[in-house]
Computed example of a mutant assay.
Amino acid sequence: MNRDFNWDNWASKSPFNAVWDKTSYLQNVRAIPTCYSPDGKYLYLSSLDYEVEIESVSQLEKALDDILDSYVSRLSCGDSAKTKLNLAIRQCDFEVICTLLNGLQERYVDQVFNKNHNYSLPEDLFKKLLEDK
């Protein structure tokens, strides 16, 4: 073990692409991770390769449906570590969107939601919606 090399320091001070290029497995997934835009108005979803407005209920609800569809289609891709990583990324994106939708439900009680879901428990909702597919 190389105890003289500070991995955290290197990763925090290196450009994103320099760290990404040195990873052993992340090159097998989307090149851009799920992240917020600099102005905080959009969320890029790595699992879907598109962005959503974080205040748009309709876009967020559609993204949940798209993630579930993508997850189900990936289930048939085998049991490799790469497949499991891709499934985990989809589930993480699902949970991020649920967190945003839950916040919108709490802030805007009168806002129209097309789905009548409890977004405060994303893991439970994910399992329930998968069972319904």
Rank of each mutant, 00 (worst) to 15 (best):
S58L: 10
H117D: 12
V72M: 10
L129Q: 08
Y36D: 03
Y44F: 14
E106Y: 04
Q27I: 13
L85A: 11
D49A: 11
D65H: 09
S70F: 04
Q59S: 05
D93G: 00
F94N: 01
E53N: 10
G103D: 12
S37F: 02
K41Y: 04
R30K: 13
A88K: 15
E123C: 02
S76C: 02
K22G: 06
D4R: 14
D65N: 13
D65L: 06
D65K: 09
S24T: 12
E53H: 11
Y71V: 08
R30T: 06
P38K: 12
Q111T: 10
W20L: 15
R74C: 05
D49T: 06
D21F: 06
Y119Q: 04
C98W: 01
D21N: 15
D93F: 05
P33Q: 09
F5G: 03
L43C: 06
N114H: 15
V112R: 14
N86F: 02
E123S: 14
L87R: 04
S47V: 02
L101D: 04
E95L: 00
T23M: 09
S56A: 08
V19T: 05
T83K: 12
L104M: 10
Q27N: 15
S24I: 06
D66F: 01
F94P: 03
L85C: 09
W10F: 15
K13I: 01
L68I: 11
L43S: 01
D66P: 01
G40C: 03
P33E: 11
F126A: 01
E123L: 12
F113M: 09
C77G: 06
L100K: 10
D93A: 04
Y50P: 03
S80D: 08
T34V: 06
A88C: 05
Y119T: 00
D132Q: 11
N114C: 05
N9W: 11
D69T: 10
R3Y: 14
D110G: 01
F113P: 04
Q27L: 12
F113C: 08
L121T: 13
E53M: 05
K133G: 00
Y108G: 02
E53R: 13
K13H: 15
I97G: 03
L87H: 06
E95C: 14
N102E: 09
P122G: 01
D39Q: 04
Y108T: 01
V112Y: 14
F113V: 10
N116R: 07
